[in-house]
Design a protein around this nucleic acid. Structure first.
Ligand code: FES
Ligand code: FES
Lengths: 143, 143
DNA sequence: TTTATATCAGACCTTTTTGTCTTAATATAC
DNA sequence: GTATATTAAGACAAAAAGGTCTGATATAAA
């Protein structure tokens, strides 16, 4: 089971990370991505297509076609990606699964959870692709 | 989609919360729980059975039977419940879905995530049923 | 004995993930 | 320009996982 993001969303994050490491403007094919990241081909294809539709990536068909970031990497935050794939429900829903989530009618761990949820949210909003790429260029990083 | 715990686990947390509000030793039937919590009968039955097997609850068949906490409520933490149903993978797996998670070969948000994950973990370990019940007795609470 | 309740087995549905195949676009070679 | 190779886009179905429902059986209280 996935932790907090869906499988799709995990793959999206991985793929965008990978694209962030490529020289600006270079198109990367699905084949290369699936090979490097070990992601099922058509599942990834669909995800990239969604991200393209949402204007986070651009695509090009034909020889030497592929995908690239649509915007300057410091304008794309993790939240943009997560929101495009999973939506932003996690930021509003009750962690215990109750139908509503608010301080007016909270569950027994609402207050603690709301605090952590805000931290997660602000990390997603703050962290952008440029910073991710910077981290990933350190020698110990995995891509 | 569920946030971080599976549906089963959410239901488990809800049910145990409810049991925590009952007088010590009182048996509560599945019927009462499903009615109050709007949870499918046999799904909850299976979950409670699992929690019983894991020694978190006790069960009794027959008229006026039902379920009750197996231990003193201040010895049951949220983590016990989560671990029994979902396991403790969330505490070790990569949030971006990479096969390993460690500082030696981290993903681009490992460091930030690891920090939040630890907070969540320590909340789960710290928060026990007694405290949950205390929160829930406040007038604005939902059960 | 009767009745209320947990337990157990299995079918069924829904969502998510993966795989097969076809079509459309386009860069490049000629 | 035309042909060809390469690539994304799209339809569709299979497989897997997660969740829900039906019904029967075992157990214990009254
Ligand atoms: S009501 Fe449960 S997290 Fe807000
Ligand atoms: S490697 Fe991704 S969270 Fe640790």
């Amino acid at each position: 089971m996935s932790i907090i993001f869906s499988r799709q969303c995990e793959y999206a994050l991985q793929a965008v990370s990978y694209l962030a490491l490529q020289p600006a403007g270079k198109k990367t094919s699905i084949r290369e991505l699936t090979k490097k990241l070990k992601i099922p081909y058509h599942f990834l294809a669909k995800i990239l297509q969604d991200l393209t539709y949402k204007k986070l990536l651009v695509s090009q068909k034909g020889p030497s076609g592929g995908f690239a970031l649509a915007q300057s990497p410091d304008q794309i935050t993790l939240f943009h990606i997560v929101e495009a794939i999973d939506g932003s429900d996690f930021a509003h829903k009750c962690v215990m699964g109750f139908p509503e989530c608010s301080g007016k009618n909270p569950c027994s761990i609402h207050h603690q959870w709301a605090k952590m949820r805000d931290e997660i949210y602000s990390m997603l909003v703050t962290e952008n692709i440029t910073e991710m790429a910077r981290e990933m260029k350190k020698p110990e990083y995995r891509l």
